[in-house]
Write a protein that binds this DNA or RNA. Structure first.
Length: 271
DNA sequence: ATGACTGCCTCTGGCAGA
């Protein structure tokens, strides 16, 4: 009975933080609203809202209790941070290190004492080429900025679509994306360097054997065949890693009508 | 199998995604 009470206490105090590449916030609004209402994360980071700032459905979100900040761009990219019953305090809009970078891929806020970043790291295809160079340069800038957050010694969650398959255990067939920017040694090295600074890959820690997917292509029957891979990640500072108690993928939402090609990924931390 | 899908604006085709 004592264990049961402790688990209940743990559950009640847990804070759920999620990340979801929604592939178009306007086209996906019904799916987004039902996911929020069903899983009720305290914080949700969104990527690929594919919406300009004035097209973001803030009122529909507010109607179900979520306050949002967002960094939009016409047609592509775009990130947002949603909080349940709280207004995210915006800390940074855009990743530092390149004043000429106009792509909307980074947003950072403080919510209830936790620093949260919504990250949409460049895809980088085709490689080699300028898009791949942009990806690697963006990755290097992210590492520098992450180190500055680390130095603040506050609880940090870096959440988003990193467009990196970290290891062969994170994809249904190791050679399936052999020529793709998501699996290149340069991409995986950049990821490994970031983790080498001390960040905890939450889902990898909870599921060390791999086999967890967060993306299934719309094409080639990838979803019914479970041909997926893991590219959506939550990286935790030590203050958050010590509080990590659960995490996973809301896989069922990938199978719904007009779903995103990504599934939501979440963690829970003790409060 | 040289394929397959989806959302967006540049809008009935092209681009980007991964």
């Amino acid at each position: 009975m004592r264990v049961r009470l402790e688990l209940r206490h743990l559950s009640a105090a847990a804070v759920r933080i999620a990340t979801f590449n929604i592939n178009g916030v306007k086209a996906r609004l019904p799916r987004l609203l039902e996911w929020l209402e069903e899983t009720r994360p305290a914080v949700a980071c969104l990527q690929e809202i594919k919406s300009q700032d004035d097209g973001f459905p803030a009122k529909a979100l507010q109607a179900i209790g979520y306050h949002a900040i967002w960094h939009g761009q016409k047609g592509f990219n775009g990130v947002a941070i949603l909080a349940d019953g709280a207004v995210p305090r915006e800390v940074r809009r855009g990743l530092p290190g390149d004043p000429d970078d106009a792509q909307a891929r980074y947003l950072e806020a403080e919510v209830n004492g936790v620093r949260v970043a919504s990250i949409y790291l460049p895809n980088g295809n085709p490689q080699p080429g300028p898009k791949f160079e942009y990806k690697l340069a963006w990755f290097a800038r992210l590492r520098v900025h992450a180190a500055s957050l680390w130095a603040e010694e506050v609880p940090v969650v870096l959440a988003g679509d990193f467009n990196v398959v970290p290891t062969d255990a994170d994809i249904w067939a190791a050679d399936a994306l052999a020529e793709d920017a998501l699996t290149q040694p340069e991409s995986r090295d950049a990821w490994a360097r970031l983790l080498g600074d001390g960040w905890t890959d939450a889902v990898a820690t909870l599921h060390p054997r791999g086999g967890v997917w967060t993306f299934w292509d719309y094409q080639a029957g990838a979803w019914p065949r479970d041909h997926g891979f893991r590219i959506d990640h939550l990286l935790l500072s030590p203050e958050c890693a010590d509080r990590l108690c659960a995490g996973g993928v809301d896989k069922g939402h990938r199978g719904r009508e007009r779903a995103s090609d990504h599934a939501p990924v979440w963690i829970e931390m003790t409060g």
